[in-house]
Design a protein around this nucleic acid. Structure first.
Lengths: 375, 375
DNA sequence: CTGAAAGCGCTAACAT
DNA sequence: ATGTTAGCGCTTTCAG
């Protein structure tokens, strides 16, 4: 039997148990490598009969090394199953950890997942790994995550800002050279790069499409909370389109929803108005789902719909859903590219980069005004 | 002006530029904290006039400390913007990093995003953070990611195994006490916990539903590659249901697709057979999308469909889509719970835990056999 | 209650 | 081509 020296992976349990930890083997006992300590550089060096530095050289390929030693070292590494401790390396080198901290509101939302995917694709060959966490759009959770990431000395910090978050606490980090990029929404209180969709123009295009097809009363169902950046921008685009067409802006036609269920309720509420809208504009993908499900439930094919953000089965609906598609993958790629440029020394002024949206006409916006709907 | 000592965040650039780095300030120059070095424990200690250990004690709350020192230390920490270096701490403490490495095939797929979400929710109050990467179902990429994670001394390793991956290289790690859990698919060559859906039973239920509604020729469109665990299990469930009903198994009715586009093509191929199926079973959510879009394109409302895995707008389709719903959030939670139990010392035998699927009947499976479809 | 010294695993800077 | 020494930022150990 091996003496059970508390292994590294039991450190957490040890803390809880409050058991005093012994750092050396008890007399007459030897360590059993397979259960106890992970092998270190020194172990490999001892095995081969060289110095730790030589092993380091072979593994990192900096200094020279004879073919023979190299072989021996590699053999010992394989034999012992040695894997260099990256934390120890980083601490000595003094550089940042090769991770990129990413904070998004919701891991389960495919929009943000796709953003993350774009980031990963872009940074992979730089050897950076994603450290991810979800904020649930809570500024406190966002801050806690950021602090954790910063304590890890991440190379890059990317945030989809929560509503109400203030980012001035990051000033010193940015000044110290940490690349910080905000995605999907701009940061607050910090001059850092951000990458956002053309929300206002996109909403404008979508609403204009509805107007072009004869709609005069167009409902808007946006995100909650209402001061969310994307909601504000998209509402602005909605209003601009109305104004441009000389149409009045009715507060009663504007409402909001935080999830699919609320969006369905909001839909039903708008349609129940004395003078109901003939078309609906969905402020995001979740709202779109709610609207569509509610319309399907009520068999209301007479209501035109345009949604901000594409949804998976848009083309299979009847009518197929017209959308203002975002490009989350591109948002991720762009944000990552900007961050890497900063990492490479780009010291230019903070910029806001926009990623274009695209109106995809599929039919749901083209319904004629149903003056005769019940005929 | 501050002398621009290469800051920590420029380490990467320095490597590339090959510029020799100087470790001390040049004569007559002083470091400018805001631009250069992050403050360390020693800096805080110096500021207050105490030893580093005292600062450490205050911050970690282990040893005793006078109220006065505590205040002074905290003030200095705030003033300098000190954040303890977690890598340095971990290296000294010898414990694992407080991260959980998670490898999934695709960050953009909401199924895996939701699994990740379930994991995060479960481990958050243990202070663990997610280190994530996508394998693209490539065993080599999976292995490379795992090695990177292991080099970081993660506390837990969770993998959605790629097809063809062998996990015996993890044996030593598991023996050393590293909790390893496979999610969605079991691992290969390693006795470790895994958490999977009741794939076979779920598929059986879905197909039985179709049979109960009179279908005798049921097409199966599954994942590619065909040896993917979930595809094998679901196909087995399909065959079992047929056999149970005394129906013959036709190889020609079984096909596969890797993405939505291929699934649409497969659908069209099956429907073009001399003796085409009257119902289709979709082996996963992506395939389901392809099938539905293709049927919509061809206006084929006469074809019944049941899909494995729920899709967002299932209830808004016409007919609404009947599915065998998985519970990805629960898969994540279960996997995380199992891993935490291991971390807490659970040394029992490796188990395979199943998360039940649920047949959600919405209508698409109930279509009568369309003997008169063209009438 | 506080400090000095040693050391975690690794690599930079000089040896040789 | 290789070894030695020192030290990254922190905590442990042992003395006050």
């Amino acid at each position: 039997m091996c003496p059970r020296r508390p292994s590294a992976h039991h450190a957490i349990r040890r803390l809880e148990a409050g058991r005093p930890s012994r750092s050396g083997p008890r007399s007459g006992e030897r360590y059993c490598h397979s259960v106890n300590r992970r092998p270190t550089l020194a172990d490999v060096a001892r095995e081969v009969g060289v110095s730790a530095k030589t092993v380091s050289r072979v593994l990192n390929g900096d200094g020279p090394a004879s073919a023979r030693t190299r072989e021996q070292v590699l053999a010992a590494v394989a034999k012992l199953g040695f894997q260099p401790n990256l934390m120890a390396r980083n601490i000595r080198v003094g550089g940042p950890d090769t991770t990129i901290g990413l904070i998004i509101p919701d891991l389960g939302n495919p929009f943000f997942g796709t953003v993350a995917s774009g980031i990963e694709d872009t940074v992979r060959d730089r050897g950076l790994t994603l450290l991810m966490g979800s904020s649930a759009d809570d500024p406190d959770r966002e801050r806690a995550l950021a602090d954790k990431f910063l304590a890890r000395r991440i190379s890059i910090l990317m945030i989809v800002p929560s509503v109400g978050a203030d980012h001035s606490y990051l000033k010193a980090h940015r000044a110290a050279g940490l690349p910080i990029v905000f995605a999907d929404r701009p940061g607050v209180g910090l001059a850092a790069d951000s990458v956002v969709s053309t929300n206002r123009a996109g909403a404008h295009d979508g609403v204009t499409h509805l107007i072009a097809h004869g709609h005069r009363r167009i409902g808007f169902i946006g995100d909650l909370p209402t001061n969310l950046y994307t909601r504000r921008e998209r509402l602005a685009g909605y209003r601009a389109a109305l104004q441009e067409a000389g149409l009045p802006y009715h507060r009663t036609l504007v409402t909001n929803a935080h999830d699919q269920h609320e969006a369905a309720a909001a839909t039903s509420r708008l349609l129940g108005l004395a003078d109901p809208p003939t078309a609906l504009f969905a402020g995001n993908n979740i709202v779109a789902l709610g609207i569509i499900v509610e319309l399907a439930r009520g068999k209301r094919k007479d209501i035109a719909v345009v949604a901000f953000d594409d949804v998976p089965l848009a083309e299979a609906l009847e009518p197929a859903l017209t959308v203002v598609a975002q490009n989350p993958e591109e948002i991720g790629r762009t944000a990552a590219t900007a961050a890497l440029a900063r990492l490479d020394g780009d010291r230019s002024r903070a910029r806001t980069i926009t990623v274009p949206t695209r109106l995809i006409v599929r039919g749901s916006g083209e319904r004629p005004v149903p003056a005769l709907q019940k005929a």
